[in-house]
Simulated assay, not measured.
Amino acid sequence: MIKPGSIVLVEDDQDDKEIFEDIVRELGITNEIYWFPETTAAYQFLETTTEPVFLIFCDINMPGRNGLEFKRHIDSTPVLRRKSIPFVYFSTVARQEDIDEAYINLTIQGFFTKGTKYDDVKSLLKKIFDYWDCCRHPNSQ
């Protein structure tokens, strides 16, 4: 475990979900991982959970409400804004217009491209978790 709280993964690809979970466990991170293959259920979880959430990883291309719309919905909900949950995009696609939208109009903390090689994804996730383990933010314990 790094900091207390669950990890929320909003990802519609089952293979990517399994790779993410495998890498997180290989890194020795024992936080609970909640997986949502679409944004509506993820939003409902975030809105109703009473347990702390350490970090949200979200894909951009999602069925129904995409990752940008999902973050916009979170930001428009006062109870979720107060939770100040760190939010990063972790996506196969990184179009410049999505990156611009995410940083200029949304309150995200990172936009990362997954990569295609297991070791590259593992290295990237390690960097992300190391950063958030050291970072102070409103939910820091």
Rank of each mutant, 00 (worst) to 15 (best):
A41W: 12
H137L: 05
Q109Y: 06
T40W: 08
T113C: 03
L55Y: 09
L27Q: 08
F111T: 05
V88D: 08
L27R: 04
E18T: 12
Y118V: 03
Y131G: 08
Q14P: 15
Q96I: 11
E18W: 00
H137I: 05
N31P: 09
W132M: 02
F70H: 08
K83T: 04
F70G: 01
E38D: 09
T92R: 04
T30F: 11
A94R: 08
E38G: 08
R95K: 09
T48W: 07
M62H: 05
Q109N: 12
T113P: 01
G67V: 06
V88R: 02
C135L: 07
L27S: 13
T49L: 11
S84D: 14
C134D: 08
D22M: 02
T107H: 07
Y103Q: 09
S6V: 13
R65V: 11
E69A: 14
K17N: 09
Q141E: 02
D75T: 03
D75G: 10
T48N: 11
T77F: 01
V8P: 00
R82A: 15
F70D: 03
Q44Y: 01
A94P: 03
Y34P: 01
L46Q: 07
G5L: 07
E97M: 03
C135D: 01
L106P: 15
L9R: 06
G110V: 06
Y43I: 10
I128A: 01
E101R: 07
W35I: 15
I128N: 00
I74Q: 10
G67Y: 09
K114A: 10
L124F: 00
N139E: 11
T116A: 03
F57D: 09
Y43H: 13
A94I: 06
R136H: 04
R82C: 12
W132N: 03
Q109K: 02
V79G: 01
I99G: 00
S6Y: 15
G28S: 10
L55Q: 05
D75S: 07
S123G: 12
G67C: 12
G67F: 11
L125A: 06
W35D: 03
E47L: 13
Y118N: 04
G64I: 07
G110C: 10
A94S: 07
V24A: 14
V8R: 02
R82L: 08
T40P: 03
D100P: 05
K83W: 11
I104P: 00
